[in-house]
Amino acid sequence: MAEREMFPATNGLATGVGGLVVAAVAAVLGLTWVDYRYAPVLLSIALLLAVLTYAVVLRPRVGIDGDDLVLRQVFSTTWIPLAAVQDFELRRIAVFRAGGRKYDSPALSRTRSTSRRVRRLDARLEIDPDERQGKGPTASEFISHRIESAMAAARSRAGVEEWSEEQEALAADVRTQWAWPLVALAVLAGLAVVVSLAA
């Protein structure tokens, strides 16, 4: 049976929930405001804020679906063959390289302080980076390890070496699907804001 796993985002949950709470407050104000002239404006702004908060902050995810790396982005989802991923770097965002292209995902990240600490540890080779000053791996590091293990296993199954021409050729199977209902909802919410402000 093919492995399927979507990892939780390692950042943005509090911001996303906060944005949805603000959108809900704006919607309640729009429904209960004494002066009903402002109700359409508040309701349309609440809808736009909720859609954008979901799309930008809560929707992005990284996962594994069989032999594919899945990058769920703001308005699209991209499937990259795991064996085709040539490089994976976890910085403020996750960066994957396949077939000469770069694919970013804000769903996985290191905090600025963790990134600085990792750079310092990498600079001093006599310090074991796994020790992390007595701390266990962060959620981002655990997920990174899972992805790197899946990449190595996929390369082994496909019989390709890292940075080979065969690996480069596998990147031709990268595919992207747009989340058209979400795109349409965002456009309609934006138009509703414009129309309500113009009225």
Rank of each mutant, 00 (worst) to 15 (best):
M1F: 11
M1P: 08
E3T: 08
F7Q: 04
P8K: 01
L13K: 09
T15I: 00
G18W: 03
G18L: 02
V22Q: 12
A24W: 12
G30S: 09
T32S: 14
T32P: 03
W33N: 14
V34N: 14
V34S: 15
D35N: 13
Y38C: 01
Y38P: 02
A39N: 06
P40L: 11
L42R: 13
S44L: 13
I45R: 10
A46E: 05
L48H: 06
A50E: 04
V51Y: 08
L52V: 10
Y54F: 15
V56G: 08
V56K: 03
L58H: 04
R61L: 09
V62N: 03
V62W: 09
I64P: 03
D65T: 07
D67R: 11
D67N: 11
D67F: 02
Q73K: 01
F75S: 07
S76A: 15
T77D: 07
T77S: 08
I80V: 11
I80W: 00
P81V: 06
L82N: 05
A83N: 00
V85G: 04
V85R: 01
R91V: 08
A94L: 07
V95G: 01
A98R: 01
A98S: 08
G99N: 01
G100D: 01
T111V: 06
T114K: 15
S115I: 04
V118M: 13
R120T: 00
L121P: 01
R124K: 14
R124S: 13
R124D: 15
E126I: 12
D130F: 12
D130T: 10
Q133W: 09
K135W: 04
K135S: 09
P137M: 11
A139W: 01
F142P: 02
S144A: 12
H145F: 09
R146Q: 14
I147H: 02
I147N: 03
I147T: 04
S149I: 03
S149Y: 03
A153S: 12
E161I: 01
E162F: 02
W163I: 00
S164Q: 05
S164H: 09
Q167V: 01
Q167E: 06
Q167Y: 00
Q167M: 03
E168V: 02
A169M: 07
A172G: 09
V174I: 14
Q177K: 05
W178V: 14
W178S: 13
W180Y: 14
W180R: 06
L188D: 07
L188M: 11
A189S: 13
V194Q: 08
V195T: 12
A198P: 06
A198C: 07
A198H: 07
A199E: 15
